[in-house]
């Protein structure tokens, strides 16, 4: 089989699309109201679940307001309205064991069916006056233990991301495929300078072409994702700006190519520019964003993909997706290459 890699690429992408789109998300909490509670009262919080099944095993449902890793407050009464809505009653003590007037709590619900779901920092409690010692005295601590894991193949639920977490299989792998393909293009440029074989220049051109295409797609998918999570298509994020510049550099590569008549000269000069541009692209995309604050993960103190955001189920789709997009890119590149070869042969005739 000569074309096995094309079939492999398509199969991997089909797998990515089906598994990536059809796998449900873990149970999460989308909303809680009221958000602001007061000390010394018995407060009822209505919680909206996502992909939750509260009515199953509702007698084993547990809920906490978590203050710190040691201190948590258990819900006194849990009333299940339906699968998505549950009402929690908390007896908030008159004083909290913290020296802050307003303290944020993480809401945590555990169910044997859905596993544990959290709303980080979602509830704030205001106290009338601060008294840490008295707060320690009246605090009835409920230990959070024996949390359940959802026993199904699911993707993690993240509060701002929601269902858009699936874009991880498009935006991020498109980027990585772009970088792999542009690197291959640069290697072809080096080979051209080394051996002066006209086909190497065509390969470099074809790969750079595809790299630019993948870059534009990565930018568009990123912008759409940003619209849903950060609120705007373009948020003056350092990585977004750097990307726009990188695309300008490769746009310039094609303008440069177009400005030569002589194919040998065009090949040589554009190979030189391709290598030079690639050398300036690496600090652009990988070093400068790490030094500046960014909304992207992995910069400015944000957690990076791979540590917490990307769990094992997501890796099962994410890693093949990189290979799939790269193979598809190489396929497109091959078609561009063959067209270029035919065009050059036509010119000779």
């Amino acid at each position: 089989m000569k074309y096995w890699w094309k079939i492999l690429g398509v199969l991997i992408l089909l797998y990515t699309i089906f598994v990536g789109m059809l796998t449900p998300l873990k149970t999460g909490i989308t909303d809680a109201s009221p958000v602001s509670l007061h000390t010394g009262r018995s407060e009822v919080v209505t919680v909206q679940g996502y992909n939750s099944f509260f009515t199953k095993e509702k007698e084993n449902l547990r809920a906490w307001l978590k203050m710190s890793n040691q201190k948590a407050l258990a819900a006194k009464h849990i009333e299940v309205v339906d699968d998505r809505v549950v009402k929690l009653t908390f007896d908030i003590p008159a004083y909290l064991p913290v020296d802050q007037k307003v303290k944020d709590f993480t809401l945590l619900i555990d169910s044997p069916v859905d596993g544990a779901s959290v709303l980080p920092g979602g509830i704030v409690v205001t106290q009338d006056s601060v008294n840490v010692a008295l707060g320690d005295l009246v605090w009835t601590n409920a230990e959070i233990s024996q949390l359940h894991e959802k026993q199904a193949f699911t993707f993690p639920f993240r509060n701002i991301l929601g269902e858009t977490i699936r874009n991880t299989y498009y935006h991020v792998p498109l980027w990585m495929a772009m970088f792999i393909i542009l690197t291959a293009g640069m290697v072809m440029s080096i080979r051209y300078l080394w051996k002066s074989n006209a086909d190497d220049d065509r390969k470099a051109m074809a790969l750079t072409n595809v790299g630019l295409l993948l870059g534009i797609l990565g930018l568009i998918t990123g912008a759409i994702w940003a619209k849903f999570t950060w609120g705007k298509f373009w948020s003056w994020d350092v990585k977004q700006n750097m990307t726009a510049i990188a695309l300008l550099i490769y746009g310039a590569y094609f303008v440069l190519r177009a400005s030569f008549e002589d194919p040998e000269k065009r090949a040589r000069v554009s190979a030189v520019f391709n290598i030079f541009a690639f050398a300036s692209l690496v600090p652009l995309l990988y070093i400068i964003p790490k030094l500046t604050d960014s909304l992207h993960p992995g910069a400015g103190g944000n957690i990076a993909f791979g540590s917490q955001d990307l769990d094992n189920t997501m890796k099962l789709v994410f890693r093949p997706a990189i290979i799939g997009w790269t193979l598809l890119g190489i396929w497109i590149g091959e078609i561009v290459l063959r067209t270029a070869r035919l065009r050059d042969r036509l010119m000779e005739v």
């Binding site: 990188a246 550099i249 310039a252 303008v255 400005s259 030569f260 000069v269 030079f276 600090p283 400068i288």
Partner: peptide, 22 residues
């Protein structure tokens, strides 16, 4: 690089500005 091409003064800006931005 730009000196090798015909329309070099335009090319100079197109090629150098993105590279110099970092």
């Amino acid at each position: 690089i730009a000196a090798k091409a015909d329309n070099s003064s335009t090319l100079m800006a197109i090629l150098s500005f993105p590279v110099v931005i970092p």
